[in-house]
Write a protein that binds this DNA or RNA. Sequence first.
DNA 1: TTGTAGGCGTTATCAA
DNA 2: TTGATAACGCCTACAA
Lengths: 334, 334
Amino acid sequence: MGATIKDISKSTGLSLGTISKFINGGTVLEKNKIIIQQAIEKMDFKVNELARALKTSKTMTIGVLIPSLENIFCTCVVSNIENILLKNGYSTIICDYQDNLLLEKEKLNFLMNKRVDGMIIVPLSEIEEEIEKIIQSKIPIILIDRMLELSRCDMVLVDNLNASYEAVEHLIVNEHKRIGIISGPKEVYTAQERLKGYVRVHEDYSMKIDDELVKYGDYKLESGYEKLIEFLSMDFPPTAVYVTNYYMTLGAMIAINEKNLRIPEDLSIIGFDNLEMARIFKPALSIVVQPMKQIAETSANLLLKRLSGDYNGFPHIERLKARVLLQQSVKSLI
Amino acid sequence: MGATIKDISKSTGLSLGTISKFINGGTVLEKNKIIIQQAIEKMDFKVNELARALKTSKTMTIGVLIPSLENIFCTCVVSNIENILLKNGYSTIICDYQDNLLLEKEKLNFLMNKRVDGMIIVPLSEIEEEIEKIIQSKIPIILIDRMLELSRCDMVLVDNLNASYEAVEHLIVNEHKRIGIISGPKEVYTAQERLKGYVRVHEDYSMKIDDELVKYGDYKLESGYEKLIEFLSMDFPPTAVYVTNYYMTLGAMIAINEKNLRIPEDLSIIGFDNLEMARIFKPALSIVVQPMKQIAETSANLLLKRLSGDYNGFPHIERLKARVLLQQSVKSLI
DNA sequence: TTGTAGGCGTTATCAA
DNA sequence: TTGATAACGCCTACAA
């Protein structure tokens, strides 16, 4: 359908090479520039990026791979990343693997087949091998959020450990003695880190941890709901619960509503990740807030640096700080 | 880096044509099949889809264009669409235009340049011309959610009008006389339709509409918050408010919390779009629920039909029904 | 069944 | 500055 350089060439009487040079900003006589420009507009010519990419082996496209499009943490970060890359001339192909191990590899391959120039990945699992291979083939990759056992890969992480530490510490200084945690899947890096913070702060305050107070969810809404119900049905339920991701926090709040509990009188809560959510509840929820924008900026800029060929400080591991937003959902027992 | 057909050809001693035929499932001698397969694995050959697409002018890729990645309605629909397309051998490139008119056109061009085989678009504005052009160039497009003044384009819409009608009717039969509506932007199709439903049901019940009760937000959280505050500060505030999208509903709920209003005693509310949200609140929120999954299925399947060359019933306009989920946020004044 | 050759739309090299 | 020509990696007649 669309016109090609050849068409423009015929129409203007100039050669392929000249047209091509014009398109790519080379030096062309002023009068020819005008002629070409007119022809381009008249014939509605658009560069065939497929052909260009085949020739230059640069697609100017970045692949972004995330666990799920319905994960608000991911889409928020991705949205910001896309923005930055676009300003630097790169387009973004977003892929989600629907929290599915098989799909994760499949989509990774898809992006490779699309010949992206680089990738930003929020990994789920054991794709170390594949990633290692890709990096070796000189395609830069930035890993976000979850650390893999890779020796040589740039990563942008959040200091989940100390964020958790702070959140739970806030409960402890308010004299809570039995603090429940709804943790994420045992095998997920962020979940491990968040749990570590909980454990470490207990140690630092010489508090023993009752195993019953540590529950493992799966980062989804239903599990937050279920685990909170389990807490409530204990003989000695916790006086405070720390919920370690957004969707489980939602689930926990649903359970609290259904059971007619008052916050913070009946139960203190610290949740995770969503500023809007924190305001929606009454009283306002205390939460751990991840620096989404900063994650996006850091990883996009690091990738751009690598794309420009600058491998200074490789592999770079950036560990960003999360902050704890204290509101009214924690009762002081002092 | 990656091996090419040529490499496989050299390595096996067979010709380019034979290798190509093998890759595309043509008839090749069994013994050669084995040889080729081995070489492919050993050399880690992957088809260069760029080259293939250039040659066949089929990329087996669908472009999906949405207003924002941070819009949960969009990402939910997109996620389901992607799933269906993938099962049919198509990959998806997701683009968001960040609620930005300029970016909308830019991204549309980007997708065209990527030579996608088809598109699914949630349009914001006046891109009729561009879309018309694309359709004429035989690239099928499905429009979702918002109708444009296009004579000839497939569309998948939601019957917003009657959903609103039902929602407001529920308020009316519960004897609410002053019903506020927080509508969306005047120029947006869905907003117009939702408002029409509100107006029509008032007419059908011979109720006059006080213009003060119709407020226009912008589909974002803050405007829901502001408009609800405005309602509350009126001399004769409404006894019930119908909020016409998800984010404005969140905003309205924040305002309600801050003002210490009880639902439904002090104010009845009907919100929009998010099942989880409806459960989070106490008492549970009544909402209009859009059939996201059905939207995704309908549009993906319609696109697949067009891609297969079947233009039966073109242009097809599907108008799906939304449902009203009645819970406890409406007080009966009877 | 297999091999050969031409072309998809670009870019890049090298003469002119 | 411009033009001719050879790739990029693949597919597809057509010939062998």
